[in-house]
Write a protein that binds this DNA or RNA. Structure first.
Lengths: 122, 122
DNA sequence: CAGTATCCTAATCGATACTG
DNA sequence: CAGTATCGATTAGGATACTG
């Protein structure tokens, strides 16, 4: 995954592809697009995400500079997470582009779920 | 991403996100964007992909109607794969948007590789 | 509420060997 | 060349219990 000439497998693009690779990462980014959130609110708002998965996704996205962590220093307790400029740009660009494509052509996208058939007879 | 409580985890968007979830699927789509390819050419052109992973990716993307399979009926032997209209649109839209974002902001995207640090001290 | 740690299951993916 | 089948290592992610 490191040194081919293939454009898409280019290292930097690979890093961006990985932002989609983990189930919850794009979901988390989209949730934060509506504004800063505390951990517990993210959890209930997203729904279906486990505590562990949430922690890992937060770590990953902080590590990649897409979100930032802000321990509340005042009255309302809790730690807030928010998008960095980079993260906001990612949501407004690639993620929004994907959402737009889905609303336009999503109907033609066959649903995963069935086992994919062998190639010989397709 | 606009006004639902569960924007990204919406079923249809989830299906599109899954197009990125498998390591080789977007790479394969990008390779086919340059024109129809035979299996062996895809393999060498992409580089680093195993036979098994290639077969699985082909199956998956055919199952989701993004690529199609065309057994050569004439002179040059081999089976050709090509993008469907849906697949071509996906490459031109979301995938290209991601590539554009990377060339613009890719430098700020921290490289994965190190273990992501705990949250307490970040 | 925020965050960590452990166990467990399913799925990914490379390597390899084999068939048409 | 096209495609399948099996094995093994790695990993994502849910459940749960526990600490600050």
């Amino acid at each position: 995954m490191t040194d081919h000439t293939e454009p898409i497998a280019d290292c930097r693009l690979r890093g961006a592809l990985d932002l989609f690779a983990h189930t919850w990462d794009p979901v988390l980014l989209a949730a934060l697009a509506a504004g800063p959130r505390r951990r517990v609110d993210l959890r209930t708002e997203i729904g279906g995400i486990s505590d562990k998965a949430l922690t890992e996704a937060l770590r990953r996205l902080i590590g990649r500079a897409l979100i930032s962590r802000h321990p509340g220093r005042h009255a309302p307790p809790g730690v807030e997470y928010r998008l960095t400029d980079l993260g906001a740009g990612f949501v407004d660009g690639p993620l929004r582009s994907l959402a737009a494509w889905v609303s336009e052509y999503g109907d033609e996208l066959r649903v995963p779920g069935e086992t994919d058939p062998p190639l010989r007879r397709s």
